[in-house]
Amino acid sequence: MQLEDLQSLTQQALSEIEAAPSADALENLRVQYLGRKGKLPEIMASLKDVAPEDRPAFGQGANAFKVQVTSAIQSRKDDLLSTATPADALDVTLPGNAGQPGSLHPIHQILARVINIFDRIGFNVATGPDVDTVFNNFDALNTPADHPSRDEQDTFYLKDGSLLRTQTSPIQIRHMLNNPPPVRIIAPGRAYRRDTPDATHSATFHQVEGLYVAEKVSMADLKGDLTYFAHEIVGKNTQVRFRPHFFPFTEPSVEVDFTCHVCKGKGCRVCKNSGWIEILGAGMVDPQVFENVGYNPETTSGYAFGMGLERIAMIMLEIDDIRRLYENDARFLRQFA
């Protein structure tokens, strides 16, 4: 073999490789040119027949053959791998296999958010039993002895005289009875009233309350913390309005409105054109409540607030009937996934 033959062989090999239609054909070419019984050993063997003065050029040509053919095979292999065949093609528009998403119940979604928000300013979560005493549910909370809410018509009593708590406030009482001030808790739970179920009433419902007791806690703290809460749960620029109200366990007592989240306070159907939506009841803990749990009302003060989670969920998620929250219809629940 002469140098010219080697050069034409190289060209032939490169063009054959370039044209190789498949990985198998390419492998055959590799064996044919680079294999143990292929062209490359043949070239190396013919070196000795080349005139000595031509040997360096022939040697370089042999090396070029090896390098170029090897690289061409690799490059053709990459090309073949990156060219799709119809059999490999996927229908990328097929749906994924994630399954239907699950979700927390709307009431618990709201609760989880409320807990998170107050968690950030140092509130711990406190809980208590649903079956509680008349003392914790009424007496300690300064409910007058003949207050209508104590009636059997409004409250579920058990045979032993205990009751299903009518509010989550007994958690506050239990917590204060067991812990000295300062107190900073958020207390979620179920409560029960003998309400006949309708679009806005449910005998079982959820509340969450907050209680902060320390020295010199004021209504300005209450307003500040609830404004923070309003900004977090509804959005920045939400305003908070206090209206005087009456609860037996707080003095002064207020009802708390947020600017309507739908119309931003301009007035709409949701807020009945007032621009405001009632969200919470709140107030400064009544000194009598402090007496009842053994706190000194002269040195401690505090605020408490509470809200109904069903109500908040209904307002924020625009749910029309409270019973939907307990129907557990997957078609309803999946909307909040």
């Binding site: 809980t127 300005a220 307003k223």
Partner: peptide
């Protein structure tokens, strides 16, 4: 009641309250 100032919230930690279960 609208004249009551909005005092910015300050975090306050009350130690030793165990609420890990919830």
């Amino acid at each position: 009641l609208d004249k009551i100032p909005v005092r910015p919230p300050h975090a306050r930690i009350v130690p030793n309250v165990n609420d890990f279960e919830i």
